[in-house]
Amino acid sequence: MFSQLRFLVQLGRAEHIARRYFVTNGFDGALTMLGLTMGFYAGGGVATPVAISACLGAAVALGVSGLASAYMSEAAEREKELHELEQALVGNLEASAHARAARLIPLIIAAVNGFAPLFLALLIMLPLWLSEAGVPLPLAPLPCAIMVAFLVLFLLGVFLGSVSGRFWLWSGLRMLAIALVTAGLILWLEN
């Protein structure tokens, strides 16, 4: 079962596509949360339950958007590829591993694309949840969430560095710089 799944993932070249989607949409999710929390912070702050509701709404929307968009685009691409392959082979591939991969891979990629922003957004929201639960934090909930967002984006950069074989710190700092520029831009616009 597992070896069959691995064979289909290899056949569908799903691993590197899923990795790319994870970073792309994970980055979107983390940066959106940074934008929201920075907006709340620069606007003078809001009650934590309001911030949680707004962030949760955005996180769920990002997750559903990632799930649906990736599934629809991947399914269409895979169907097209399968059809072209059938034409090249002059045969029906409906019972083949290629057809199974064409059905399975969009589901895997959609799950990764939807899960990545949702997971990272929930991670960034963690200080808000903890604050509401009465857990003492070193900073106010919003600055804490902003710090977590910076950390998450830095770690995404580190992950990219490990994928590309570049120096992890440089890659992480580059991602952090993007996050800092975004935060600075929001602060500048709000003031």
Binding site: L85, L89, G91, A95, S96, A97, H98
Partner: peptide, 8 residues
């Protein structure tokens, strides 16, 4: 088996 691997 060959058919299931997309070949003929």
């Amino acid at each position: 088996t060959i058919g299931s691997l997309g070949a003929s």
